[in-house]
Amino acid sequence: MSRSKEALVGVVILASVIVVTFGTLWLQGVTLAATETEITAVFANVGVIRPGNPVKYRGVRVGRVREITVDPGGELVRVVARIQEDTPMPADAVAILAPESLFGDWQLEITPRDRFPEYRYAQPDDPDHLPGYAIPDISQLTATADRISADIEILTERVGIAFSEETARNVASLIDNVEEVTQRLSELVSQQAGAFTDVTGEIQEATQRIGEAAASARMSFDQVGETLSREELARILEDLAVVAENTREFSGDLDETGSELRGMAARADSTFARVNVLLAQVEAGDGTLGRLLQDPAIAMEVEGTLQELQLLLEDIRENPRRYLRLSIF
């Protein structure tokens, strides 16, 4: 065995040890040059965080998770991480475990508490430890969705119970009614469509007639135009002159008649004046008629005379032979 062979074996072994050692440290994120410090955060649970997962501050990778242990009391989980010593730590810093992406890789993020004040952070016993909160992972969300689906299933069963046979019949009846109403509406629409068609036809007919009337009017206007343009207009004007002359003569006759009427009115006026005088005498009790109207005794006498005359006439009617005797021979 030559010494060079032995040296070669030593080189291979040394190279392998170096590769394994430094490779492991490098893949773990251990930087020998940088100084690191250790932080501890406590959580109620840690989701799927594992040693080696990155620690980030404001999105910048500043370290790695080193160790995860359950607290002896069993209430909390302590996560130890190594971060760069110069990492600025907020006064109210908290640690949040959250998925780094959708593919199962998680991270520990150091953030001020007021960024997510709504989270229920686990409270550490040691004031140097950070309160922590783990955002529910997809399995927990799936479990929640599973519970929701179970609730929906129960709800569906209850709806199924509530949806009895009678309800089904009612719904079927309702559907039938709706179908009937729909059918009637359809018929109504059809009828209205027919009426509309009729109206449309009538409108078309009226339009046609209006068109024809317009054509006729146009023809009449044309005829009038032709008439006005021909000699008939002169003849009509002459006839109108004759009519005007006759009217004028009739108007003269009317003037004469008016004169006669005016004379008759004057005579009537004088007659009425005399009647007035006569009536005034009557009212004054002058003359026979005046006394008759004004004197009650005369009136009573006249009335009595009339009654007696009436009695006489009745007696004559009943007993004509008493007063009238006819003898021929």
Binding site: T24, L27, Q28, G52, D105
Partner: peptide
């Protein structure tokens, strides 16, 4: 990716 899920136990 290489360091994402690396564990010393892998080695």
């Amino acid at each position: 990716g290489l360091t994402l899920f690396f564990l010393p136990f892998d080695v």
